[in-house]
Nucleic acid binder design. Sequence first.
RNA 1: GCGGGCGUGGCGAAAUCGGUAGACGCAGCGGGCUUAAAACCCGUUGCCUUUCAAAGGCAUGGGGGUUCGAGUCCCCCCGCCCGCACCA
Length: 882
Amino acid sequence: MSAPAASAPTGPGKTAGRYNFRHSEPHWQERWEAEKCFQSDPNGDGLPAKADSRPKYYVLEMFPYPSGRIHMGHVRNYTMGDVVARFRRAQGYNVLHPMGWDAFGLPAENAAIERGVHPGQWTRRNIADMRQQFRPLGLSIDWDRELSTCEPEYYRHEQAMFLDFMDKGLVYRKESTVNWDPVDHTVLANEQVIDGKGWRTGAPVERRKLAQWFLKITHYAEELLSALETLDRWPDKVRLMQHNWIGRSEGARVFFPLAGRDDRLEVFTTRPDTLYGASFCAISAQHPLAAEIAETNPEAAAFIADCARLGTSEEAIEKAEKKGFFTGLEAVHPLDPEWRLPVYIANFVLMEYGTGAIFGCPAHDQRDFDFARRLGLPIRAVVAPRDADPVAFAAELEAGSEAFTGDGVAINSGFLDGLGVAEAKRAVIDRLAESALGEGTVQFRLRDWGVSRQRYWGCPIPVIHCPTCGAVPVPRDQLPVTLPEDVEFDRPGNPLDRHPTWAKVSCPKCGGAARRETDTLDTFFESSWYFARFCSPKVEGQAFNRAAVDYWLPVDQYIGGIEHAVLHLLYSRFFTRALKDCGYLGLEEPFKGLFTQGMICHETYKDADGRWLSPDQVTRGEDGALVHRTEGTPVSAGRSEKMSKSKRNTIDPAAIIEAYGADAARLFMLSDSPPERDLDWTDSGIEGAWRYLNRLWRLAAEPATPLPAPNAPRPDDLGDGLPLMRALHKTIAGVSDDLDRLRFNTAVARLREFTNAYEAFDAAGDGPDWVRRHALETLARLWEPMIPHLAEELWSLLGHERLLIHTDWPTHDPALLVDDTVTLAVQVNGKLRGQLDVARDADRQTIEAAALALPNVTAQTAGKTVRKVIVVPGRIVNVVAN
RNA sequence: GCGGGCGUGGCGAAAUCGGUAGACGCAGCGGGCUUAAAACCCGUUGCCUUUCAAAGGCAUGGGGGUUCGAGUCCCCCCGCCCGCACCA
């Protein structure tokens, strides 16, 4: 790509002048800073000044992980947020637009292992670097509210929250399975397990049981689900994903007494109506009953081990045949004491869902059907479609290979026969309840949130393990529990665990020797409340100044990536409820408006050997074909994909800003693609943005016609300036609406369209000249949220001393939106045959007559009879003739 | 397998109360300015028929339907993308 050299304007003449962004952008940034334009915390308590009566508006972009380098995704994300922040500020809102760092996490530990640098040092240096990289973008951020989650001033509050959650019964500890890398002696996150092997060591991952801390998100499952309906400014897609993730299903718990034993098998089903079609029971390989049987039955133990081996790779699960092992036990059918069902251990039953046990009804569940076929178990139809012949239907189903899962009526089901599915469910549940053999229940797919991580670089869990008192909370006056600085990463495992002194403490209860919890919190913990901490980031004794969170929350517009659709957003919704129940704040939903932006993509390149090449290694040869820049060897271009280091198709924002300036980068980010869709980065796209900025700059720096003085009075009669004035007001209305709905691409198109109209405008006189200046000033004001530096530059070129950012957002004059005449499309039989200019208020007869008189219309209707003329005022005339 | 989304010029896209499809931009083509190039400016650009003009035909993944009129609503089919994935 050719980087334009910014030069001083050369004045009118043969060479067009160029906008010098290198001078201008830092200049306006300094002015904004000097005038404290983005400050929002005058008292230090998070609240606005007493006299400030503006309504509040909280705009937030998901805070970044401090990797050390900003990437194009950041530029897009923060540009969008900045447009919203600047737009709302101009509209008279008191805007909160903060920035912080999601600073705990694995990459810092990897850096420590690979380069021997301390995670804290690495993280803090990255933060400093990234702050510097954000600065040239000209974002309207209140940096005074900056926070970093890895600092004790931040995480001490979440330790207190953890203890409050404990008091509220929202925290518990239980054994849970983790992915264990036997070489690194470390726990792996799911995404670090690739094909059942550790990503770093390649060693087969083991499943180990560890006691871990859980947060009871399921306590709020019902509410988290139902409240989704109130989030009307969230994308449907995200709400749907959360809906599915929570996965509510209504059904029943059914108890099957075990023949010859005192205990019973507890089963969850959504189809109690098919109980008469049961032909077996099945339990998970992890079910306690399975373990019990395995103790005395080596074959059962072998089968269970077999099941455990499976289950790492998704593909294996997909292809796995349904397998079962007969336990020798028989379950008694709850509706018929004479009826016995064999009990199997089955590889397709999940311990984590429901009760870890099912009853199988092959006729009406495909999995059960497959299982029954394999093991030769009976298949008995107990539901038939309403219009089917029950006997024939049952025969066909039992001979076929597919279960029937649709609605219908009960057959072969005793007292249920003839009832619909829904009625039959109710009837069965009632009958079971009478004999205490079952009950209606609601089951969720959502599981409790396991927050323990066997890691160093995270927030310490404030608990002490005492051999006599058990898990004891760290007394609040001893918070924060801080991470030790003197740690080594030269050996595998968790440095906290093997630290010589850190974990050794005395029990707060009995004073005996005890040991600190060495697990740290999942990093989703920090991001579940940072948006609230931003409301009063400087208060010390408490997490929040209650008045400040009451004032600022909820976040009016949250912007971030779709990858956080479920976990981060669901955890934050949970946290907000839990914090409310602990008295921290007073609302349930933290994010009123949510917007998920698309990714930045770029074409990918490979050399002849299939190695990825970065865009700057690729150029076009003389024949236009892609070649390697230095070696001249052929290069093949692949499809456009999300920018990623592994595919080497990234573009460095710093290089773009250096070559074209921040406004060009911002403009390109907002142009062309709708913000929720992926954006393709192209060289020609950024060139186009840069070209437009210069055009705009020239309108003010080198005007074709001299402009009247600033603040010149508006002439009573705009004369020939009226059409441009109308176009301007349509633009004001359109752009305001676009920005309100975050439709940045159409706002850009509209402003460019008006620029075209402005340049084509050649009327002369006082009226037109006044409109010219007015239009240019308004154009600067409308552009300011998107390209703030150039907008200020234009404003200044137009002779204003006071910053543009302090001027109000323009409002349109509704009278100027309606034209005196309108152009109607004229159709004959639905096909366009001409156009008609008529007065806006022309009556139907006049329009009809004029339309029928159009030469093209008479030609088309010649020899036909006009049956009907449809007139849609202001839009269209359709002549129906045959 | 289940759920959701999307298919519009060479490309990114507009047009969502059913009313002139292709705004705005990218790329292309022709021209101007220039010693030359860049930059900049002007014109042009969905496809087809037509020497020009005028006009006409075809076009929003494919097929059918509703309607005076369908990118938009309904039904069927095809393709791509995303989420979940033995959730009983």
